[in-house]
Amino acid sequence: MTHMLLYIDQISEGYVILITGLLIVFGALLTLSLFFKFGLPVMLYIYKVITKRKDKKIKDIKVEADEAFTGEIAAAISVAIHMYLNEQHDNENAILTIKQARKLYSPWSSKIYGTHNKL
């Protein structure tokens, strides 16, 4: 009997945790997203007011960076730089490897050759 009671109690507590937990998680991330949607521009504005120019309105600095400059452009530029720096060796001069040897004739044990060509 007591076991049964405990069991039901656990399930109902489980539902309480389910609902409150979900609400809190949603609430927390909603506050975060609202803050970054609305709070952050205000903060940046206040920062600007404190540092210098006072005549600007919130609307003017809502998006600080250039609107046309998206992440895609940044990605393209960085890929280009990366390729330039890392893939350079693909265009190396192939002639390097087939350069003519300095000595045309070199019988390594020839005594005569050794007396004529001093190292």
Binding site: I11, G14, Y15, I17, L18, G21, L22, V25, F26, A28, L29, L30, L32, S33, L34, F35, F36, K37, G71
Partner: peptide
């Protein structure tokens, strides 16, 4: 850049609480 996408991270946590139950 897109704060509303944060809610998707919250929505997936339903798996946590459903499994809990």
């Amino acid at each position: 850049a897109n704060p509303k996408l944060m809610l998707l991270g919250a929505a997936a946590q339903i798996g946590v609480f459903a499994t809990f139950l």
